[in-house]
Design a protein around this nucleic acid. Structure first.
Lengths: 155, 155
DNA sequence: AGTGAAACGACCGTAGA
DNA sequence: TCTACGGTCGTTTCACT
């Protein structure tokens, strides 16, 4: 199913299902059914529709810290020319896990994941600032992640 | 299992398993086993360990756009006093889905999700700027999300 | 949109290399 | 850490509401 233009309104049952899958994406349909008061088949149908409509997906999420990537940062980028082309280049860098075009004093925000400070310096100097059209960057090194939600709009 | 201090090194098989679960978090252990060349039980054991060690989790992720939240923004916050206390307050706001303490010209970066511009203005004026210790904010409205990765360190 | 039932397949514990 | 296997439980399909 293609993404829609109109918002999809979730009823309380679908929100409850998403909440169950937020706690554990591998929880069985039967178990979710018990929790939300629906049969297993009904839960399965709703989950399928939520996925097909693009409202929700169930995915594996990894923790960079646990994998030895101790430095994360948000890099604000000011661009000359077409920011989409710069965004494309940024996205091709493996250490860049998040790229968004913005309005404001930065044209692009890019989140980066590195093992240590040396890698971050290398990434900024040798990769990011060398991209054609990157005018200036400003780096915000992460000190502590305080909140991270994956399920917007379900609370 | 408690989070570790030392990085966990993933072998190619575990990376392949995470990649499978990245494509579809509900894929069966048996199917993953076929794809990565392992028995169903072995896949199950590895997934369990990856989850218990905190390296990986399988979760539901929702798309704000599909739910009618058409405005997202990153808000850079400058703080007087203890940034942890401000971060705590920010995190209590439902529209705030991401809060990180940073070093740089902002003390905190907070991502917000709103239905429209009016809600964003309301959020900034009535909620965020009213928090004790918030000295100034700078808002970067999202124009286009270009890249979003959930599985750092597995490629 | 939802339920229920039967066949099938996945999951889980345990044993053994 | 892996495979093998049997019991249990979850999933799938389909007929029905």
């Amino acid at each position: 199913m293609a993404p829609r233009n109109r918002p999809i309104a979730l009823d309380e049952v679908s929100k409850a299902i998403i909440e169950q899958l937020q706690e554990d994406g591998r929880r069985s349909y039967a178990e979710i059914g018990k929790a939300v008061g629906l049969s297993e088949a009904a839960v399965r149908q709703r989950v399928q529709k939520l996925q097909e409509s693009g409202v929700m997906q169930v995915v594996a999420v990894t923790d960079p810290m646990q994998l030895g990537f101790y430095r994360q940062a948000m890099v604000g980028v000011r661009v000359t020319g077409d920011s989409r082309i710069v965004a494309q280049r940024l996205g091709e860098i493996p250490a860049v896990d998040y790229v968004v075009l913005t309005a404001g004093s930065f044209d692009i925000l890019a989140e980066v994941v590195c093992e240590n400070d040396d890698d971050l310096i290398e990434l900024l100097n040798q990769e990011i600032r060398r991209i054609d059209g990157v005018q200036s960057t400003e780096t915000f090194v992460y000190l502590k992640l305080h909140k991270q939600l994956y399920n917007w709009g379900t609370r």
